[in-house]
């Protein structure tokens, strides 16, 4: 089966591109990025602030299963309805032990493919190659952590 979400990341580069085709008209795809209530639903995050305009900013907050709050924020450089969003993205509160991620730059382009389909291209530029690769590893590391926690629970029950 063809994968709907594609990642293009070349070795030794400090950027990557995420592309995705949606079974949605362009306007509905863009609305999902524009409307704070909808952003909250699909990103699984609280939207504290979302100013959709040039020089505007946004602030999101997620709560992990342990109840820890994680903040994200950024500044919006370009906001053109149904066309593009250029913004920065920064994690506010990485866990003390983890790698600290510098701010990244995101170029989002929204395109009409047909009356019922659209495409999103997200070009992300990181400060360095190492920062990009560390960000790519995050979801894998989290998966392994979950497995670790499970082992700890099992060991804890034996004691």
């Amino acid at each position: 089966m063809e994968q709907k979400t594609k990642i293009h990341a070349e070795d030794g580069k400090q950027d990557l591109t995420i592309t995705r085709e949606f079974d949605l008209p362009l306007e509905l795809l863009f609305k999902a990025y524009e409307d704070p209530n909808i952003v909250e639903q699909w990103m699984g995050t609280k939207v504290l602030k979302l100013e959709n305009k040039k020089h505007g900013s946004y602030q999101f907050e997620t709560t992990d299963p342990k109840g820890n709050k994680h903040g994200f924020n950024g500044v919006i450089h370009e906001f053109v309805s149904n066309k593009k969003i250029t913004r920065t993205f920064e994690m506010e509160n990485p866990p003390a032990s983890a790698y600290r991620f510098p701010v990244q730059l995101e170029f989002l382009e929204f395109e009409k493919r047909s009356d019922h389909t659209s495409q999103l291209t997200m070009h992300i530029v990181y400060r360095s190659v190492a920062d990009r690769d560390q960000m790519l590893r995050l979801p894998f590391a989290q998966g392994i952590n979950m497995a670790h926690n499970r082992i700890q629970n099992i060991v804890g029950n034996i004691k």
């Binding site: 994968q3 709907k4 949606f22 999902a32 990103m43 999103l120 960000m135």
Partner: peptide, 15 residues
């Protein structure tokens, strides 16, 4: 990493 974004976008599409 790809799966993380795929999950998010699938959710967006469904909503």
């Amino acid at each position: 990493f790809r799966q993380l974004w795929d999950d998010r976008f699938n959710k967006l599409e469904a909503i």
